[in-house]
Design a protein around this nucleic acid. Structure first.
Length: 213
DNA sequence: GACCAGGTCCTTG
DNA sequence: CAAGGACATGGT
């Protein structure tokens, strides 16, 4: 087998330490449709900007996949302008809407679909990569899909967790129990830790690292 | 004014 | 397959 400090062991330790450090953390709650839209809007920007864009969409009556599918691109671009990459994100929102409405007819058609099928479908939508797909699965549809984002990679690098060829996702999913709450919670912990202690410009000495190494 | 933010896609070597 | 660039606004 592996030594006393395999990548999996280190991830297990990270999850435990974060849990003790932060305890339960709140996370944005919204209907699945809004979570999906938010998952696109938040790409490569602060959540605050994505949230503003969501409110702009709401104000314009565009906070639904039906409306996004129907509306002219210019109207959506104007609403999501404050989230950056507004032309790209508009195209991605429309692609998402087309996928959901075309493949499942509606959001309701997705809630009972198998996770594998949803994940493959989402990854086939231009503009939806692994992180966005897993965020949608985890936070919009309560699935056990762990979200690997920039914070996770940074933290793992800091904690000397070597990345497997298939990526970090499998490590976390092997460590977490099969319940959605833990997936949400651990990702929330990592984001909180990243924002507070381990951004790109500054990475304070990781207390995590010493307790794990 | 540079640098960064909860990515993804396309092009090059 | 790794590395680099494009997409864009808002905050430090």
């Amino acid at each position: 087998m592996s030594g006393s400090s395999s990548a999996r062991d280190r991830v297990q330790a990270l999850v435990a330490v974060l849990g003790e450090h932060f305890g339960p953390l709140p996370w944005w709650r919204a209907p699945p449709e809004e979570v999906m839209i938010g998952a696109i809007l938040v790409q490569q920007t602060r959540w605050e900007n994505a949230e503003r864009a969501l409110e702009e969409l709401r104000g314009a009556g565009l906070l639904s996949l039906e409306a996004i599918d129907r509306a002219p691109a210019e109207a959506i671009e104007e609403a999501v302008h404050c989230a950056g990459f507004f032309r790209v994100k508009t195209r991605r929102l429309k692609a998402l809407a087309r996928f959901v409405l075309g493949t499942f007819g509606s959001i309701e058609g997705m809630v009972n679909a198998p996770t594998d099928e949803l994940r493959r479908g989402l990854l086939g939508v231009p503009g939806i990569g692994e992180e966005t797909a897993d965020a949608i699965l985890c936070y919009a549809f309560d699935r056990c899909s762990f979200v690997i984002d920039a914070y996770t990679r940074r933290l793992c690098a800091c904690a000397r967790v070597e990345e497997p060829a298939e990526g970090y996702r499998g490590l976390f999913e092997a460590v977490l129990s099969r319940e959605n709450a833990g997936y949400r919670q651990t990702h929330a912990h990592i984001v909180e830790y990243g924002k507070r202690y381990c951004s790109r410009r500054r990475c304070e000495e990781c207390s995590i690292r010493s307790s794990d190494a």
